[in-house]
Every structure is written in C-alpha cells, then in structure tokens.
Design a protein around this nucleic acid. Sequence first.
DNA 1: TGTTGTGAATGACTTCACAGCG
DNA 2: CGCTGTGAAGTCATTCACAACA
Lengths: 204, 204
Amino acid sequence: MPTHVPDIVIGRLPLYLRALEHLLKEGREITSSQELGERLGYSAAQIRKDLSFFGEFGKQGSGYRIARLAQELRKILKVDREWPVVLVGVGDLGHALVRYAGFKPKGFRIVAAFDNDPAKIGQQVGSLIVQDSRLIPEEVKRHGAQIAIIATPASAAQEVADMLIAAGIRAIVNYAPISVKVPAGVRIQYVDPAVQLQRLTYYL
Amino acid sequence: MPTHVPDIVIGRLPLYLRALEHLLKEGREITSSQELGERLGYSAAQIRKDLSFFGEFGKQGSGYRIARLAQELRKILKVDREWPVVLVGVGDLGHALVRYAGFKPKGFRIVAAFDNDPAKIGQQVGSLIVQDSRLIPEEVKRHGAQIAIIATPASAAQEVADMLIAAGIRAIVNYAPISVKVPAGVRIQYVDPAVQLQRLTYYL
DNA sequence: TGTTGTGAATGACTTCACAGCG
DNA sequence: CGCTGTGAAGTCATTCACAACA
C-alpha cells in the first residue's frame, strides 16, 4: 500500500510493537509518541513519522490506543499469524533457539530442525526430533516454510543457505559468523554474537 | 584520533575484519575494496570511505595487504587484546553463549556467569560455575570487566543492567526482549531473536 | 491544552568521479 | 594500467515546527 518504506523504518516497527505489548501488560490503554520514544530511545517525531508511512493511528490531544496500534503493527509486519520456521544447525546455539519460548508469542514456530551430524540426528530437542539435513528440501516444502534460521558453523552456512533457498525459503536469519550470498528476492539478517561485542569495544 | 566516526561505520568494521580473516584462512594475501564489497554486499566506495576515517591502508594499483589491514582493524576496534566479559542469565540462550567457541578468537572471554535461580547456582557450564547474581558487584570489579551480556528474561533485564552499570560495566549486549534505560556513557546493543524474524516478514 | 500528522529544513550517509600514485 | 583516497554531488533519514483538531 505505501509508496515505499525504507528498510530502516521496517526495522524499528518490531521495537515499537514490543514496547506497546509491554505497556499493555502493565495495564495501560493509551500512550503517546513521546512516551514510546522515551522508552525506546527515539525521538517522538521519529515515531510519528515512521507510523505516518502506513496511516493515521492516533488522536490529536490524547495519543494512541495501545491495543489498536499494536494490532495495526502486527498487520503491517504480517505477524498477525503464525509463521513456520525451519532451523539448521543444532549446536548449542541452535539448540537454545529451538527451545526459545519467545518465538511463539511473536508469531513464529520452529517446525523442523536439521543437522548433518549423525550423533544429533534422531535426538529430541524441545518437541522436535533433529532431522538429517538432506531432508531439507522435502521438509521445507511440506511445511510451506518461507523463513529459516541458520545456526551452523561458518563453513556450512553458504551451502545450507543455497539448499534452503532452492527449497523455497525467502527470508533467513543467519547466526553463523559469515556473510552468505543470496539471490535478489531473498532477505537475510545477520546475528553474529562476536560481532555484537566487537561493535562495542571501540567506545571503551 | 579521527575527528568523529559515525556509529554506522564502526558497526561495519567488524564485518570487514571477519571477511579479511576468512580470506586469510583461504591463503590469500592481497584483496581490493571491490572484492571485499562483493563478499559483504557493500559498494567498494563505501569500504574505502569507511577505512579513510582511520588512515591510508592500501596501495594504489594493487589493493590491501590482508594481514596488515586486519591487524589495523583489530587495533581500531581494540580487539587486539582479550576482553573479560560477564554474562547474566543462564537459561538456554545464556548457556549457549557461555559455551560459544566463537568469542575467544575474536577477542572476548566470558569470565563469570550469574543467575538468581538457586537450582542453577553452583552448576557447571562450560568451564565456569554459575554464581549468585548478588555477587555481580564484587565479581565485576574483581575481573575488571567493562562488558556484559544480559540473557535474562525481560522482567529482570533492567534491574540487572542497573546492577552491572553500578559495578563498572560500560558496554552491554542485551539478548532480553526489552529496551533498558542506561545512562550516557554506557553503550548497549540489542539482539532479540524474535525481533530479527519480525524484521523479515514484512517483505514476504 | 496536548498531541498528532506532515511539509520544510536540516543533517547524515552513500555514491560519484577522478587526481594521484605504485 | 589498476586501484586507492577523497572532495563534491547526490540521496536518504531525522528533526523541526506548526496547523489542525479532539
């Protein structure tokens, strides 16, 4: 619907949504761009401008109805549903992500976990049984998954990404410490735990 | 030394460093801004401009000596040493991070892990014994740690951040799904696994 | 009065394009 | 000749500031 929304705006919307859900849990019904901004460390103008890409959700003089705005954001972000997600690489980090309780309330469910280590295949992790990576193509299709999490070592990440994309995956969160090449039309987000730390030390 | 370097530039340097280290492992000695850019998905000009904030590291006509540039970046980022890091919250995610093998080669070592759950205190995780969160002040000081990782539930994150900062922590990576208030002079990076996914669904 | 939504103004970041040098 | 380093230009993002309105 909107002409074009910068990626950086889309990146902030989940934070707005998260803050709104916290306010709701505190029993609040109304908030303002100023209050949201203070909680999140953004300017009030930034928040109003971001929201204005999608419509008019507030009331002059009073602010935003929290429940309503949260629901609008869920619709915009398409997290007003449950997305099936597949995960590849059941090391410590992958293991933790499979069991992570925070996905379900935010619109995601890990429906399959893969590894190529025979010692891990067949093991139960959370409510899933680890499957052989060779089953990725058929399982991705069977679940209709468009989203994947890569939590393999760096050495396997590119090959795994290629296989996932061939199977129909169009969005990836990559926890492996390496950049992977993906074709146009596939979105990728990087989370390298060591890089997060290295972004801080410069300032110390 | 440099007048002022934008945060966004600092944020890319660890990615340049990571790519250089990969090239080194492949046995390469020389690279160019173009090659680096292609690997990482940035323009060659972007990379040259970023580096120019800190000096002149290349040779016209040939490019960059990889080992030399990597070492310069480590110096700039101050990861040419080993930083002690403390971690709070030994759930699945914290557990995985304590055992994460990727920190050491990038300049970090987790020197203490804390939790407030009596069932976890005293347990061994990796080479560490989980300690009572009440020991944070003395242990942070004893190790001289300036960096912390928060991997607690959202409900504990603010309180834990306050305690860490009071004890001398000046940089935080927060895996808890909540924004926390920190005073000026303390840097914080957020990694919410669900937010990473929510940043992708808009495009599907 | 208090707060939104939004053009206009400002500021920040990226790309261009080329001189200069190895 | 190829590639860096870098001002200048261009693009994109944020903040300002205020009309509109509950």
